[in-house]
């Protein structure tokens, strides 16, 4: 039992399940998944579908946070990628061709690579504080996106582009598959190779890492590039889903949702220890929260308060200190701290 409750994914999972069950109470067929027009249809599919961009952005954010940094620019990168791709498609002679769409995707990812590299250089080489370095792009990027779209919403009609965020492959929304593939790839890369360990060590103790000969600068630069690429993919999904690029609203505040997802997933903002699985759960918790607001009919004026209350509850229930205190108040001083502190040590060694 202790093995289950002590697992780092236990509490995020509990919260997610609790939220889903709360929905079930209001909508009896909430868990029903049907086949409609040759694709899966149901609330759970919606959560995964709309949660996919957030999962991707949060994934990149997790790696950045693991190194002790933070990336505020992802929302702007989402908008820029969406704007570039849609602009290219809308201006091409043959918007419906696969070639055009692939070029658009390549342009979006290419520019994101540059943006990420710029962030990486600022943080790793020049030594600007991550929050400041990425704030620059966060503020400037939305302006850039609006410059690209000329302040308009660009509407595109392109079947292959529609597939990325709004299409289906083997009855499943393509964006879910894409997000799953990226998550799988990232977890293989970080857990099956030494990369994850190196990231944790750079984030956990930069000085010690340097002394044992880890090239921190390159690693830190890399995570910002990965983060930007993830954000660009998310931007493609978001714009493809509505077949339009909106420089103003695409990915607005997604950086905050992503940071929240990372925290809810149990990754420490201090860097060091990270959990990709936790982040995916965290992103799903946040998306489920939105869906819950819509389905149980919370008035828009109080939506933010409702979300805040849930987030506070989630963070408290995840805190070992808080749980220990609560338990102590209930049953006297039966036991003290949970064995969490010992886990953190595995990194620094």
């Amino acid at each position: 039992m202790k093995l289950v409750t002590g697992h780092r994914l236990f509490w995020p999972a509990v919260v997610l399940i609790a939220l889903l069950l709360a929905n079930l109470a209001f909508t009896p067929d909430f868990f029903a998944i049907r086949l409609r027009d040759g694709h899966l249809y149901g609330s759970l599919i919606d959560i995964l579908h709309f949660g996919s961009p957030l999962i991707l952005v949060a994934l990149g954010m997790t790696l950045v946070i693991a190194t002790g940094g933070i990336d505020l620019s992802v929302g702007s990168t989402v908008a820029i990628a969406a704007a570039l791709a849609c602009l290219h498609i809308s201006e091409s002679d043959d918007p419906g061709s696969v070639g055009t769409v692939l070029t658009a995707v390549a342009i979006a990812l290419g520019v994101a690579l540059l943006l990420g590299a710029a962030n990486g250089v600022l943080v790793a080489r020049i030594g600007v504080q991550p929050i400041i370095a990425t704030l620059i792009l966060m503020v400037a990027g939305r302006g850039v996106a609006q410059l690209i779209t000329d302040g308009q919403i660009i509407t595109v009609t392109s079947e292959p582009f529609k597939l990325i965020g709004g299409g289906y492959w083997l009855t499943v929304p393509f964006s879910i598959l894409l997000a799953a593939a990226v998550v799988l790839f990232a977890s293989m890369l970080t857990r099956r190779t030494a990369l994850g360990l190196l990231l944790e060590s750079v984030g956990g103790n930069p000085v010690a890492s340097r002394l044992v000969g880890i090239r921190a600068a390159g690693l830190i630069g890399l995570v910002y590039v990965v983060s930007a690429l993830c954000a660009a993919l998310a931007g493609l999904m978001i714009s493809s889903n509505v077949s339009a690029a909106d420089g103003n609203n695409a990915g607005l505040w997604i950086e905050l949702d992503a940071i929240l997802a990372v925290v809810v997933g149990g990754t420490s903002l201090n860097g060091g220890r990270f959990s990709l699985g936790g982040t995916v759960l965290g992103a799903l918790v946040i998306q489920t929260l939105s869906t819950t607001v819509y389905t149980i009919g919370i008035p828009p004026e109080t939506t933010l308060v409702f979300k805040a209350v849930v987030v506070i509850a989630v963070c408290l229930v995840q805190s070992p200190v808080f749980r220990a205190k609560a338990a102590r108040r209930k049953s006297g001083a039966r036991h003290g701290n949970r064995p969490v502190a010992s886990k953190k040590l595995e990194v620094g060694a």
Binding site: S43, N241, D246, Y294
Partner: peptide, 14 residues
């Protein structure tokens, strides 16, 4: 548009 779509999808199910 994005929010309109997302909210409508939830309405259609609930």
């Amino acid at each position: 548009r994005a929010k309109g779509k997302e909210v409508m999808q939830a309405f259609l199910k609930s």
